[in-house]
Design a binder for these strands. Structure first.
Lengths: 349, 349
DNA sequence: GTGAAAGCGCTAACAC
DNA sequence: GTGTTAGCGCTTTCAC
């Protein structure tokens, strides 16, 4: 640790010094440290004259507060832990980005963790997150290990679960019902007079939400007399390549298929490309519906009918819940927000 | 703050208590707190018998260390601040995910920030990051405000700049030369006998790295006698829709075009779809090369020739640098790692 | 509205 | 190898 030199007498010991402390600010402003602290946290509670002096002092000294000292004293930090399966996934990236922006306005920082769809890893991350006494913890989905639940219950940290509704949340939840998505997909295809339906899934074991969409799809399809429905899946993560491959498999096993729902738009894109190669007309011979409304979905050829999940809305609502919950620094208050989703009807169906 | 009850006498005052502290662990293990601390940080320096007792005690009490107390005492935390333009961008998402995984192994946590391509916002985020006395700060690219540079220089926090090489880094840098990417793109098209070249760009003002690719492209193209080269661009973020739109504009302005490089694969995907609609044959009439090797690029029709930037390698190398730098808790040590990139020749060229 | 005092839970010399 | 001793920089009663 190099003592970046100021024009001061050399420090005697190898003492790592936080450059400027609140005491320095207070001394220069000729007030007490606690007034500075108060000014920083509740500016309105400090007189105008003091405020001005403190502001000047902070400015002059280029003071950077030490949030760890603050967090330690207050037994709660200005960090919010967000734990998602992976930020490589555009859905979660969207929500994380939105939340960071929203929370950042209130000077809350995002601590990020990736579970890679492992509950054990999630538990690990929750434990690490708790080490920071975070202002809140955000989890993806509603499935967690018992240990995770226990840790969270014992901690009194606000918890928000995102991107999934259905079972009982730990405390607050923002998302939508993925089974309903499946319903909508099937209903849409049926309405377009499709009767031989297939759901193309990827990694359905790990991706519980995709599995719920598949379930909902099958459930709804079964309600239609004369309709058949199958699930074709692959253990690899979803991608256009897997989509293309599964389309091939589908045509082999169920050549009569006329309606396909994909676990997301990446898969659907693969289906579109493979159909181009095989000379299958969309939507003439085959209707396709995706999930995600990813960046390419409106521009594809044909453009892709899909479900748009409100990733940004989930982020803003989750951030709002956290902010409110912190404001009345109160008790647990169970809240469930259903953000719904939108079906975008385009050329592929 | 609810005092989650244990079977103990009610706390007299409304005291928020960190459930279990290191002292509790020490007491139960019948050693001193500092031995516990040592055990946690350097297990090898503690005797086997003490280690065992401490491990049991931690287990039994379900002890969660308070990292803020630790960070405060040590004047440095186990957080690494990673600041990227946006995690919505698949490139940065990849690197962030990789870094989180690598750093997580050493129990370092990721503090995430998004600049949205604003240097002012970056400065803000750096200031906030410094409040945490992070173990390291990771910045995207080499362009930063002077204030940012000054903050960082004065802080003695390790700094790694990622995803760009070229000018002088603050301390360490991991990435590649985007101008070289432009060179490779142009050279490839020229080699395929393309002479009327166009670079399709999005948001080149903000995205300095894309601008460098465009520059390199033009520079290399100009070396070829008989070749013409143009840049067509749009201020909006890159997307398939913008790509499709710009392809239209290109065909209007430069109908003789026979080679197109795109600022990334999203744009290229838009070009492919638009060409399908306009009946333009790829690669017969027009060769297309992208950047990114995104998830759909190998599966498209035709499959997309592109440049693959090693987003994960950048992440692992950056993490490695940070870990090493922390290990010898030493001085600044300027390091530059050129990860290179790969040209993937597929059907579109 | 402001200040004095008492920690928050841990690390880091240093002595033993 | 282990324990003792001081803080790290801030928040938070509680007086005034």
């Amino acid at each position: 640790m190099v003592d970046t030199q100021r024009s001061a007498k050399p420090t005697r010991k190898r003492r790592k010094m936080q450059r400027v402390t609140m005491m320095d600010v207070a001394a220069r402003a000729e007030v007490s440290p606690s007034t500075v602290s108060l000014y920083l946290r509740k500016p309105d509670a400090v007189s105008a004259s003091a405020s001005e002096a403190i502001a000047k002092s902070i400015e002059a000294l280029n003071y950077v507060p030490n949030l760890m000292a603050g967090g330690l004293a207050a037994a709660s930090s200005r960090a919010v832990s967000i734990i998602v399966p992976s930020v490589r996934n555009a859905f979660f990236a969207e929500t994380v980005a939105t939340m960071q922006a929203e929370l950042g306005k209130e000077r809350l920082q995002v601590l990020l963790g990736h579970t890679e769809y492992s509950e054990r890893e999630e538990e690990n991350l929750v434990r690490m997150a708790l080490s920071w006494a975070p202002a809140a913890i955000v989890l993806t989905g509603l499935s967690h290990s018992n240990a995770t639940r226990r840790l969270l219950r014992e901690s009194s940290v606000p918890v928000v679960e995102i991107w999934e509704l259905g079972s009982e949340p730990i405390e607050m939840a923002v998302g939508f019902h993925h089974q309903q998505v499946g319903h909508s997909m099937a209903a849409h295809l049926v309405q377009r007079n499709r009767r031989n339906l297939v759901f193309l899934g990827a990694r359905l074991q790990e991706d519980k939400r995709a599995a719920h969409r598949a379930e909902g799809f099958v459930e709804e399809a079964r309600k239609t007399s004369g309709a058949t429905v199958e699930i074709i899946q692959h253990p690899a993560p979803s991608s256009a390549e897997v989509g293309a491959m599964l389309l091939g498999e589908t045509m082999r096993k169920f050549p009569q298929v006329d309606g396909i729902a994909c676990s997301n738009d990446h898969m659907a894109l693969g289906v579109i490309f493979e159909c181009q190669r095989l000379g299958i007309n969309i939507p003439g011979q085959l209707s396709v519906i995706g999930f995600g409304d990813l960046s390419f979905s409106a521009a594809s050829n044909p453009s892709l009918t899909t479900i748009r999940p409100p990733g940004d809305l989930i982020g803003t609502e989750a951030a709002r819940l956290i902010l409110e919950r912190i404001a009345d620094s109160g008790e647990r208050k169970p809240t469930v927000i259903d953000t719904r989703f939108t079906l975008l009807h385009r050329q592929s169906s």
